[in-house]
């Protein structure tokens, strides 16, 4: 089963990644990215992911950009970040293929992750033949789980910027997908530090 190697990823670059050969042999044939997503390899890594879209309605919005960051131990590998732009006039497959290679079988971490994954699934489902199977970790629910244990009658403020402020993390610089992914990664590491 051919698996795509993880090419060196260039920040923000538009790269002509190899287009996966469209499978025409029949519905039973498997898309090569499928094996990547379902591989049993344990990298110990996680991927923080965030997207920008034209609206917050996952059914109708258009995807604009996706940013993904790998997390290894206590480190956020910002130097190897992947930022992809999507345009309605361009085919999404090359970018999607790079994204799936970057993610692999790693658990996904994000803020409002369901929306990001729903947006991606609209692209992944038709090409790969299944929705993203990765484990999902929603940082706002990690935060809520921690806050709701404390006695108090106030509602928990779940806005991302409020969470950052409350956890004494640096504020987002800009509000692009990349800043969102970095914020989610930091919140995750602060709330779920790696065990020594």
């Amino acid at each position: 089963m051919p698996t795509e190697t993880i090419a060196s990823v260039v920040a923000n670059g538009v790269v002509a990644a190899p287009v996966p050969v469209a499978d025409t042999a029949g519905p039973m044939a498997e898309h090569p990215d499928r094996a990547l997503l379902l591989s049993g390899e344990d990298t110990g890594e996680r991927v923080a992911i965030h997207c920008e879209a034209t609206s917050f309605d996952a059914a109708t919005a258009d995807l604009r950009s996706v940013a993904a960051l790998r997390i290894r131990g206590a480190r956020i590998l910002t130097s190897q970040r992947l930022v992809l732009g999507f345009w309605p006039t361009e085919p999404a497959e090359p970018a999607l293929s790079r994204l799936l290679a970057f993610i692999g079988n790693r658990p996904l971490i994000g803020y409002y992750l369901d929306f990001t994954v729903a947006m991606l699934d609209r692209l992944v489902q038709p090409t790969v033949g299944m929705a993203l199977p990765n484990q999902r970790i929603e940082v706002s629910s990690l935060y809520y789980g921690r806050k709701s244990k404390l006695p108090g009658k106030y509602a928990v403020d779940l806005r991302l910027d409020s969470i950052l402020r409350d956890l004494d993390l640096p504020p987002r610089v800009g509000d692009d997908a990349c800043a969102g992914a970095l914020a989610a990664a930091m919140v995750y590491l602060r709330l779920e530090p790696p065990q020594p």
Binding site: A74, R75, I76, T78, S79, L182, A185, M186, P196
Partner: peptide, 15 residues
């Protein structure tokens, strides 16, 4: 700047 990674360490963890 492009080569930097970010380490997030909670209190009492060994860096």
């Amino acid at each position: 700047a492009a080569s930097l990674d970010l380490g997030v360490y909670v209190r009492d963890s060994v860096i």
